[in-house]
């Protein structure tokens, strides 16, 4: 074996992928809800991505590509399979058919001083709601990027996101009323 290591490609991959490390880890931890599993997931994601980097088309969305690998790796992992099998996926409605809420979120907002309460509520969301909410609000991805990452149509992104938000609000509301 000679010096035929994939150094230039590896250099390019490192330069592109390492800046995403913190946010990928955060996302992985939210998905797995466990530090060790999150580390395994991120490590596996980077290994797979490096291996498949030659198939990545330069000029396309690298961030969405990395998140997609991470998410697919999670879904096929033991904890991912458990998370998706125990929570039934709601009927998806494509297109911008969004929920109308007659109650304003002001009541929630007034008491939204506890970040822990909110974190617990996000953790308790079904994984497909949790991931889309995090991609939109925390990673600030556009609907198009989310669609690429989750491999779903734009319409599904909008409807699922609306339901994720409504579910979060619904779950926060009784806790606040109790408090």
């Amino acid at each position: 074996m000679g010096m035929s290591g994939p150094a230039p490609q590896s250099d390019a991959f490192e330069a592109l992928a390492m800046p995403l490390f913190d946010q990928l880890y955060n996302f992985a931890h939210w998905l797995t809800q466990n530090r060790e599993e999150a580390e395994d997931l991120v490590q596996e994601t980077y290994t797979k991505a490096l291996k498949g980097f030659s198939s990545f088309q330069l000029g396309t969305n690298f961030r969405a590509w990395m998140y997609r690998i991470l998410r697919n790796t999670f879904l096929t992992s033991r904890s991912g399979l458990a998370a998706t099998s125990t929570v039934p996926l709601d009927t998806e409605v494509d297109g911008p058919v969004l929920a109308v809420e007659n109650q304003t979120p002001e009541a929630i907002l007034m008491q939204l001083s506890s970040s822990q309460l909110l974190q617990d509520a996000i953790s308790a969301l079904p994984v497909h709601f949790r991931e889309i909410l995090l991609l939109c609000e925390v990673e600030e991805m556009s609907y198009q990027e989310i669609a690429e990452t989750l491999s779903i149509p734009m319409g599904t992104v909008m409807s699922r996101l609306a339901r994720a938000r409504k579910t979060l609000r619904d779950r926060l509301r009784p806790q606040f009323q109790e408090g």
Partner: peptide
């Protein structure tokens, strides 16, 4: 403001320096 609250609450987990080093070494040429 709820969006902002979710954004803050969502940035919750930070990887350890040791883990970062391990991954970096695994992808470095």
């Amino acid at each position: 403001q709820i969006k902002r609250a979710i954004q803050v609450a969502g940035k919750r987990f930070t990887p350890s320096a040791e883990f970062r080093k391990k991954v970096r070494q695994s992808v470095a040429p």
